[in-house]
Amino acid sequence: MNIEPVYSSLDYPKKMALVLFTPGCDIRCKFCHNPQLIKYDTLNKMEVELIKDEVDENIDFIDAIVLSGGEPLLHLDVIKQFIAQAKDADLLIKLDTNGLHPDKLIDVIDDIDYVAMDIKAPLDKYYKITDIYPNDVKERIEKSIDIILSHDVFLECRTTYVPGLLTPEDVETIVSQIRCNQYTLQQFRNRATYDVSLLSVDEPNPEELHDILMSIDTNHIPSLHLKSGQFGNQKIK
């Protein structure tokens, strides 16, 4: 099955969710923890119907559907079906996205409750983390942020901190370039990566990540979080 459904109490804050991982991504982040989903695959009608049946069968046990990947906006017509099903059942909808598809985002934003956008690196330095990326990253992400916030949808921006790929100064630059309701700095985990050389890179110490967050100006962002394997999702402010 190309769509991987997973039940989670972590992916939508304080809600039980069915997370749908769709295949295909248009960038190749070296630290990607879902490398099996990078290759694009067409989603056939039968598969989509099977997932919709699973949603129906578990409707009493979930509060939300999380559309993740890969990059779910690459399958716009398919995720529209899941969004419509969720709204018919009064379920919340969260979208995980790389922010590079504002033209598709605008088509669904009115039905989305929560967006988690992965900001991989400073907006003019995506070459640090991937060899494949559009040349207008900054413009696309800024447009996506504008769309989300102008529709009063909760926006969490997330950065995975990989030693050797990013520096504390990079995090400071990222924070200065974005607007969001919540910023989360995530600990790199070396369990599975697209670039296998990163499997030998040490995971950053949560205390180091905490110090990075505390050393930069985040006053324009209402909520600040740190996510690590040791301590889970910690609210810093």
Rank of each mutant, 00 (worst) to 15 (best):
Y127D: 10
K120W: 00
N58P: 00
Q85N: 12
L213V: 03
P72S: 11
D88T: 09
D90M: 02
A89Q: 11
D146Q: 13
P163V: 01
I65Y: 04
K128M: 10
N98I: 08
G99W: 02
L43V: 11
Y12K: 00
K39L: 12
Y133D: 00
Y126V: 03
N135L: 12
V19G: 03
L166Y: 01
I51K: 03
L74R: 01
D53F: 08
L123I: 09
Q186G: 09
L73E: 05
G99C: 07
L18F: 10
T42A: 14
R28M: 04
R28Q: 11
R140I: 01
D63Q: 06
E142H: 15
H220R: 05
A116R: 08
R179Q: 14
L166H: 01
V78Y: 00
V55K: 11
D41S: 15
N135G: 11
I119K: 02
V6H: 03
I141T: 05
I141E: 02
A84M: 12
D103T: 10
D56M: 12
P23G: 01
K138A: 15
L149N: 12
D111Y: 08
K104I: 00
V48A: 13
N44F: 14
L155A: 09
D107L: 15
Y133K: 13
E169N: 14
K138D: 10
L226R: 04
A116G: 04
M46A: 14
N2W: 06
S197K: 14
D217V: 08
V171N: 00
D103A: 14
T167C: 05
T173M: 10
N44Q: 10
V175L: 11
Q177Y: 09
P168N: 13
L165D: 03
S150Y: 03
E172T: 07
E47S: 12
L10F: 13
M46S: 14
I51G: 05
T173S: 11
L199A: 05
V6R: 13
K94V: 08
N58K: 13
V19N: 08
L10N: 03
V108Q: 07
V78M: 01
H151C: 03
K104R: 15
Q177P: 00
V78H: 04
E4F: 15
I65M: 04
D113F: 10
G69H: 04
I65A: 01
P13G: 08
A84Q: 13
K227E: 09
T160E: 02
L224V: 12
D118H: 05
I51D: 04
K138F: 07
D195T: 03
